[in-house]
Nucleic acid binder design. Structure first.
Lengths: 185, 185
DNA sequence: GTCTATATTATGATAGAC
DNA sequence: GTCTATCATAATATAGAC
C-alpha cells in the first residue's frame, strides 16, 4: 500500500512477498475486500488503544485531549497507509464491517468525554461540550495529518512544517469556546 | 475518477464512455500519466482563477483571504476528484510536470500577499506575515475540505458539519497572531 | 483520425490434486 | 495447507490498414 497507493494492494503481490502462490491465501482470507476489512479492524483497534493509554496517563480535560491527539498523530504518521484506509476511504468498493468500525465509535466517545471534562474543569466554555467542538478538533487533526502525509510523509511526528502546529491550534480552543469565569484548573 | 477512485481512471474506460476504441485516444494523449498531467494542469489553472477573482472582489487582507478560501473550498468540493488529484497525490507514479505546477506557485504567492496585507492593516500581528501562518491556513482548509469530502462528499459547500467551520476557524487567526495595537480595519 | 488485431501483463477467484 | 492449472476479465500500448 505504501508503494502503490492504498488501493494498489493486490493479493497477487501479497502472495509474491510471502513466497507463496496466490490461491494459498484463500485459506486465510475470503477475498481482497475481506483483507482490507482485517487491516481496517486491526488498525482501528491499535489506534484506539494507543489513544486511550495516552489519554489516561495524561489526566483529564484538555491535557487528556492534547495527549490523545498527539498519540493519534504519531500513530497515524507511523502507519500512513493504514491510517489513510481508516480515515480517507480511498478504496472505492470497500465498506468496513460494523465489527471493524466498533473501535471508532468508542474513540469518539472518549474524546467527547474529554471535552465534557474540560468544560467541567473550566478550561473551556459550555459550548465545547458539543458535537461541533468534536468536529473542530477533528478538522485540526485531519488538517495537520493530511498536510503532513501529503507533503512530508517521511518526517516523524513533531518535526517538519505541519505536525508542530497541532499544539498551537489546540491552544486556541479556549478562544473558540471561552470559559465564562476565569477559574483555572 | 468519482466512481472508481482517482487512480481508478483508465484510458479504456475513457474510450468506452466516448464511444471510441482505446487506441484512438493516443492521437490526443501520450499516455495515461500525460492525461493525469492535463487534468492536474487544468484543475490548478481553474482553481487559481476562481480564487484570484474572489480575492480581488473582496478587497485586501483578511477579507480577501477569507473570500479566497471560501471560493477555494467551493471549487474543491464541486470538483472533488480533481481536487484530490491536485492536493492529495493519490496516483503513485504520477508526478505533475513543472508546467502543470506553475499555477500552484502563483496561488501561494497571492495568499502570502493577503497575509502581509492583513498585517499592514493591523488585522493580524507581524508574525502572520510568515510561512508558518500560511501553513496554519493550509491546515484549516485541508482539514475542513478533507473531512467534508470524506464524510459528506455530496453536500454543497456551506452546509453539513464541516464546511461551516472554516469561517469560525479563520476568526481565531487574530488569537494566534494578535495585533500589537488595537486599531481595527 | 479512426479502426482491427495483437503483444504483454496483470488481476480475483475457483477446482481439484497432493 | 500448499500447489498447478485454469477461467474470466482487464489494462497499457503499438503496428498498421483504411
Amino acid at each position: 500500500m505504501g508503494e502503490e497507493g492504498v488501493n494498489g494492494l493486490t493479493l497477487s503481490e501479497v502472495a509474491r512477498r510471502l513466497g507463496v502462490q496466490p490461491p494459498s491465501l484463500y485459506k486465510y482470507v475470503d477475498s481482497l475486500m475481506a483483507l482490507y476489512d482485517q487491516l481496517f479492524r486491526r488498525g482501528m483497534q491499535a489506534h484506539l488503544e494507543v489513544m486511550r493509554v495516552a489519554m489516561e496517563q495524561a489526566g483529564t480535560g484538555l491535557d487528556a485531549l492534547n495527549a490523545g491527539l498527539d498519540a493519534s498523530g504519531r500513530w497515524c504518521l507511523a502507519n500512513g497507509p493504514i491510517a489513510q484506509l481508516m480515515f480517507w476511504r480511498p478504496v472505492p468498493r470497500f465498506e468496513p464491517s460494523a465489527d471493524a468500525m466498533a473501535p471508532s465509535v468508542e474513540m469518539v466517545a472518549i474524546q467527547r468525554r474529554a471535552l465534557a471534562d474540560a468544560v467541567a474543569l473550566g478550561q473551556l466554555g459550555p459550548k465545547a461540550d458539543s458535537e461541533q467542538a468534536l468536529y473542530v478538533v477533528s478538522v485540526f487533526i485531519a488538517g495537520v495529518f493530511g498536510q503532513a502525509l501529503a507533503n512530508e510523509p517521511d518526517l516523524p511526528w513533531g518535526t517538519g512544517r505541519f505536525t508542530p502546529l497541532l499544539p498551537k491550534l489546540m491552544d486556541v480552543l479556549p478562544a473558540l469556546y471561552p470559559p465564562s469565569s476565569t477559574k483555572k484548573k
